[in-house]
C-alpha cells in the first residue's frame, strides 16, 4: 500500500489524513526531515503559507523538500500548499519550495468575506467537484510543461506538472475524495516507473 505524508507544521492536516485513509492509502504526518524518507508522496495542506515557511526554515526542511521533488516523488499542494510549490509569487522576489513552473498570486479573490464555494470541472477527475475557496490564491501563469486541469472565471485554479499537483481550493474540506484518488494514482505511477530506472 502506498504511504502518503502530510506536512504537519500547521493547517488542515487531519482532513487530508482522513481523505488519504478514506481513499485506501496509508497516511503519515510529516513534522521533520526524518519523516520525509518514510513516505512515497507528500501533501502540502491548506493553512498559512508564511507561518509554514517560518517553520520549514527553523527546522531546516527547505533543502530536503526540494530534494523530495527532485527525486521525482509526487507532491500535492492545496491553497497554501500551492503557494509553497510555485516557482514565482506575484509581489514577492522569492519563492518557497519553488518547483512548480507557475506564478501564483496570493489572496487573489479578496479577503475572508469574499471566500466562496462553487462547482468545478476538473479535467480527468470530475465534472462537478465542490470547490471551497478560502482566501484563495490563483495561478496567473504556467510554464509549457504544466497542464491546466481547472479554471474558474478564466483563472487557473488547478494544474499539474508531471509529478507535481497544485490547486487553489480545499478538497480536504469536503467528503469528495476524487482528487485524492487521482493523486494516489500519481504516487502509484511514480513507484511503478522507479522500478525501470
Amino acid at each position: 500500500m502506498v504511504k502518503i505524508g502530510v506536512l504537519a507544521l500547521q493547517g488542515a492536516v487531519r482532513e487530508h489524513i482522513h481523505s488519504i485513509e478514506a481513499s485506501g492509502a496509508k497516511a503519515k504526518t510529516v513534522k521533520g526531515v526524518d519523516d520525509l524518507a518514510l513516505v512515497d508522496g507528500l501533501i502540502l495542506p491548506g493553512g498559512e503559507s508564511t507561518a509554514m515557511r517560518k517553520l520549514i526554515d527553523r527546522f531546516e526542511m527547505l533543502g530536503p523538500l526540494r530534494q523530495f521533488a527532485a527525486d521525482g516523488k509526487p507532491m500535492f499542494g492545496t491553497c497554501a500548499g500551492l503557494i509553497l510549490l510555485a516557482k514565482e509569487l506575484v509581489g514577492y522576489d522569492y519563492s518557497h519550495i519553488g518547483v512548480l513552473d507557475a506564478t501564483v498570486e496570493r489572496n487573489s479573490f479578496g479577503r475572508q468575506v469574499d471566500s466562496f464555494e462553487t462547482d468545478l470541472h476538473i479535467k480527468g477527475v470530475a465534472l462537478d467537484f465542490p470547490g471551497v475557496f478560502v482566501r484563495a490564491p490563483h495561478i496567473v501563469r504556467v510554464g509549457e510543461n504544466v497542464e491546466i486541469l481547472a479554471t474558474y472565471e478564466d483563472r487557473i485554479v488547478m494544474a499539474r506538472q508531471g509529478h507535481l499537483l497544485g490547486c487553489s481550493f480545499h478538497p480536504e474540506l469536503t467528503e469528495d475524495h476524487r482528487i485524492m484518488s487521482y493523486f494516489i494514482e500519481m504516487v502509484k505511477e511514480s513507484l511503478a516507473n522507479k522500478v525501470y530506472l
Partner: peptide, 22 residues
C-alpha cells in the same frame, strides 16, 4: 452559469480549520 456562494458554513468554518496548529 456557475453559482458562487459566499458566507457558507463551509467557508466560514473552513477558514478556522486552516488556522489549526497555529
Amino acid at each position: 452559469m456557475t453559482i458562487n456562494l459566499t458566507g457558507t458554513d463551509r467557508v466560514k468554518r473552513g477558514m478556522a480549520e486552516m488556522q489549526k496548529g497555529g
